[in-house]
């Protein structure tokens, strides 16, 4: 790829609204060539809008978007970008091979069709009609069409939706193979683990804002501690928020979930109470990461994490 710019993606103060909703709200982001970046956020956080802006499918209301120093439309026209979109359905009456070779044929330096099919795990389905495949296979077809042009920047919008565990593993392996060739990859996900396992850098977005940006370790630290859960079996819930380390308490039926920034101390205190039925200690999930990374209420600051105020009834926590 003869693209002089060392920056693959640049977002400068980008704002995009739909009616009253600010889908992307003043995003500042620069991604270097060759980076693998995860865009982490809940549904509706602004991930898909960010990707549409990168592809020129949407125009920002304010700010500028650049890909390899060009406008998105130009970068797309020059074949520098390949993308796997979330909402497309398979097009009828075309085989996998026909579709992938057609997409590749439009790019200046496409990947050999057989290689794109192999990377996406589609070799054995090459002559099947695209609309006769299962959901997981269709997802692989989307991946193959994104790879077909051998683009310098690969954008993947929730690429592992509809994939089973085995297919996920294979998918990430292929993605890393492609990234290791010096290509820039950006994928969106709502799983912190997936982001941590497969990206060099995680950008967390919430309500259109970038609330954290850094390597997985940094994000997990900011997300704060662990989650301790156990069966209540009659234990009173009132005192739980006062236990050492506990930052938040959620109760789902008979099970209590304590978010803690010192799980050892919390577990010892629980042992002392005799409340260790089906005790589990797990790293904080994305939901919990969001509790600390995003605002706890109006006016709270972003990104710095743990407020040590017990959140017995956190507004974002779900009660089943």
């Amino acid at each position: 790829m003869t693209t002089q710019s060392a920056t693959a993606v640049h977002f400068g103060g980008v704002v995009k609204s739909y009616g009253a909703v600010r889908a992307v709200n003043g995003a500042e982001l620069t991604i270097g060539r060759g980076e693998t970046v995860a865009l982490l956020g809940r549904n509706g956080a602004g991930k898909s809008t960010t990707i549409s802006l990168l592809l020129g499918l949407n125009e920002p209301d304010a700010g500028e978007v650049r890909i390899f120093g060009r406008t998105p439309q130009r970068a797309v026209r020059e074949g520098l970008v390949g993308a796997m979109l979330q909402d497309g359905q398979p097009i009828p009456r075309v085989t996998v091979r026909e579709l992938v070779s057609f997409i590749g044929s439009m790019y200046p330096e496409p990947m050999p069709v057989a290689e794109a099919l192999a990377l996406a795990g589609l070799t054995e389905f090459a002559d099947r009609r695209v609309d006769k495949l299962s959901g997981g296979q269709t997802q692989r077809v989307r991946f193959a069409t994104a790879l077909a042009g051998n683009p310098g920047l690969l954008l993947l919008d929730e690429p592992t939706a509809a994939l089973d565990v085995e297919a996920r593993r294979a998918f990430w392996e292929s993605m890393r193979t492609y990234a290791d060739r010096g290509n820039t990859v950006m994928f969106s996900t709502h799983y912190l683990e997936e982001a941590d396992d497969n990206a060099d850098r995680i950008v967390v977005i919430d309500r259109g804002r970038i609330v954290a940006d850094g390597p997985g370790e940094t994000i997990k630290r900011a997300a704060g501690g662990n989650l301790v859960s156990f069966d209540l079996a009659g234990t009173a819930t009132e005192g739980l928020s006062l236990l050492p380390g506990v930052v938040a308490v959620e109760v789902h039926g008979d099970r209590a979930r304590l978010r803690t920034d010192d799980s050892d101390a919390t577990v010892l205190a629980l042992v002392a109470m005799g409340a260790v039925r089906r005790l589990e200690v797990a790293p904080a999930s994305l939901e919990d990461a969001f509790l600390s990374l995003t605002s706890h209420g109006p006016g709270a600051t972003h990104g710095t994490g743990t407020t040590h105020q017990p959140l017995t009834a956190a507004p974002e926590s779900e009660t089943v």
Partner: peptide
């Protein structure tokens, strides 16, 4: 084609 997103797919490909 528009309804199933095929036109979108063409728009993000290098085809004027």
């Amino acid at each position: 084609d528009k309804a199933i997103g095929w036109l979108r797919q063409l728009r993000i490909a290098p085809l004027a």
